[in-house]
Amino acid sequence: MKIEKLPYFIDLYETRSYTKTARNNYISQTSVTQFINSLEEELQVKLFDRTTLPIQPTAAGTRFYQDAKTLLRQYQRIKEGLAALDRNAALPVRLCYTSKIDLQILLPFVTGFKTRHPDVAVDVEQATFKEASKALWVRRCDAVIGIDFEPEYTGQLESLTMYQGEYQALVPEGHPLFGRDAIRTDELYHYPLVMLSPHVIGRSYEGMLEHARQDGYYPNIQRTANDMDGEMFLILTEGLIGFVPDNYFPQEYAGRMRRIPIEGSHHRFQLEMKYRSGENPSLDLFVEELAAYLKSE
């Protein structure tokens, strides 16, 4: 397998088109076909069902797609790391984050860090809550920022608490609770709710259900969404109540929805950075200065 050719497979999976894949990679369709055929022969599986148009990936193709993206990222970062060592330069800090909130907290610190250490590159990549733990486990990144990590991947890693807070209700204009300054738990659970899908937020979904049970209720989760934008859409179009951390509000929806505290609720969270120390000097420096920064805030 030639790792540098994996983009051919990834593009074919995403576009379902040999023509587009060839154009994206500046090669002929024949070259794409030959690579996919050789890949299937090497792996001893069929990656695509060619009896339909457009072609469709098989179950093996879908599984390999995820692994191929991880393998390609690792290969590219190995090359970057070796090139940095060859230049006697600092290794980059590779961070996986799960939401805009993570970057909002990091931004002022990273700006100062880069001023003090201009030779250290800080690269960021977004992952779902569920993917984040595994991303660190397979060394796709040096550290991950998120909530409710998967313990089988992160149980032995070091942790830095970045923020502790509570979830608040996100209520759309026109909802009976829109004008309230605070919402009681019995009022909250009287109405249908929307949450991010468990396929996206992983353990956090069960955590939210557990918090509701601790409040003494079972939530009426009417809809789930695959991302924050989708959740905002459902809140506004279907009049549902969502949840949002107390340190974040989508300003583009100001006036059309409000973030309202929930009285006496167990809906709390802890935003953490999980990492391995001793493997990347740049990361160790980054974590040391970040811990001092957070302590001073």
Score class of each variant (00 low, 15 high):
Q34F: 09
V200Y: 04
S296Q: 15
Y167M: 14
V200S: 03
Y253V: 07
E263D: 12
Q222S: 11
L234P: 06
Y97Q: 09
L43Q: 09
D86M: 06
Y153L: 00
P192M: 10
T30N: 10
R184L: 15
L285M: 10
T70A: 14
T19N: 11
L72M: 04
L196A: 04
Y97W: 09
I147Q: 14
L107W: 08
T154L: 03
T15Y: 09
I78A: 14
A291P: 02
F113M: 07
Q168D: 05
Y18V: 06
T19K: 15
L107I: 03
S133H: 00
K130F: 07
G264I: 04
A291T: 08
L271S: 03
L177N: 11
F48C: 10
L170M: 14
S133N: 00
L170W: 13
V194A: 05
R139V: 01
E41S: 14
F243Q: 08
G230A: 08
Q251I: 00
R116A: 11
L12K: 12
G216M: 08
S265Y: 04
I101Q: 15
F149N: 00
S31D: 02
E238C: 11
P192E: 10
V45N: 07
L85V: 04
K114L: 08
L43V: 08
P192K: 11
E173S: 07
A90R: 12
N280R: 11
R116F: 00
V144W: 02
K100G: 09
V171C: 02
G61Q: 09
G61L: 11
P176S: 07
V120G: 04
N37S: 14
R94N: 06
E288Q: 13
A292K: 15
G242F: 10
Y97A: 07
T15C: 09
K69L: 01
G112P: 02
P54C: 09
K79W: 03
S28T: 15
A90K: 12
P245G: 08
N226S: 13
Q66T: 12
A68D: 01
I27E: 07
R139S: 13
L12I: 10
E297F: 00
L136N: 04
N280Y: 09
Q74G: 03
R94L: 02
Y189L: 12
T115L: 04
R140W: 07
Y153Q: 00
T224F: 06
S265A: 14
Q34Y: 12
G264W: 04
E158W: 06
G264S: 02
P57D: 08
L236W: 08
E131I: 01
T115E: 13
G255Y: 10
Y97C: 07
M162C: 05
S277K: 15
F269G: 09
P192W: 11
L283S: 10
K5Q: 14
Q251W: 00
E152Q: 05
Q56W: 03
L12M: 10
R213P: 00
S282P: 02
I260M: 00
M257I: 06
S197N: 06
E158V: 01
M208V: 13
Q222T: 03
E206F: 03
V138D: 10
K100T: 12
G146Q: 05
P108Q: 05
P172Y: 02
V244N: 09
F9R: 10
S38W: 00
